[in-house]
Amino acid sequence: MPWYIKAVLRIALPAACLAALYLSIPGEVALAKTAGWSEHYAPAMPICLSVYALAAGAISGFRRKMRLPGEKTALIGGVMALALAMGAQSISHLIEQSYMAGSAALTVAVSCIPPLVIAHLIHMAETPAVVRTASEELEELREVSQSLMTELVASESAALASHTRLVLRELGAATNNVSELNEETEELNERLEEALGEEEAMATEEQGKTQKKRLSIARSIEGARESLAAQGKKATVARVCETLGISSATYYRYYQPKTDTSSEGMLSFSVG
Rank of each mutant, 00 (worst) to 15 (best):
L244T: 10
N182S: 14
P257V: 05
E28M: 15
S111D: 01
K258S: 05
S147N: 10
S162H: 06
A159H: 09
R10W: 07
R225Q: 12
M124T: 05
V8G: 02
E151S: 13
P114M: 08
A230C: 03
T261E: 11
G36T: 07
I95W: 00
L166C: 04
T210H: 02
R165A: 11
Q89I: 04
E186G: 14
A161S: 13
G208C: 14
S135V: 15
L54V: 13
A174R: 14
R10I: 14
T175S: 10
I59H: 01
L181C: 14
K212L: 11
A12Q: 02
P257K: 02
F62K: 10
T164C: 08
V108D: 01
L31D: 01
G172I: 07
G77Q: 05
I59N: 03
A7Q: 06
L181H: 12
M80E: 05
G172W: 07
A224M: 12
T34S: 01
L13P: 05
C241E: 07
L168S: 07
S157P: 04
Q97D: 03
I11H: 06
E190I: 12
V117P: 01
R169C: 03
A119T: 03
A32R: 00
K6F: 10
A81M: 01
Y255T: 12
L18M: 14
E193R: 05
V8F: 05
K213D: 14
I11D: 06
P115G: 01
V144M: 08
E183P: 14
L49R: 10
K213C: 06
A88D: 00
V79S: 06
M80I: 04
S38Y: 04
C112S: 04
L13C: 04
M100Y: 11
Y255A: 09
A224Y: 08
Q89H: 06
E242I: 08
S270C: 08
W3A: 05
K72H: 10
A104Q: 01
L192E: 15
Y251W: 13
E71R: 12
G172T: 04
I91P: 07
K33D: 00
E184Y: 15
P46N: 13
T243D: 10
Y41P: 02
M80V: 01
A161W: 15
V271F: 04
E206R: 03
A109I: 02
S111E: 00
V79I: 15
A58S: 07
P115H: 02
L82N: 03
L168H: 09
P26Y: 02
Y41N: 05
E126K: 10
P43W: 11
I118K: 01
E187W: 13
E140V: 11
L9D: 02
L188E: 04
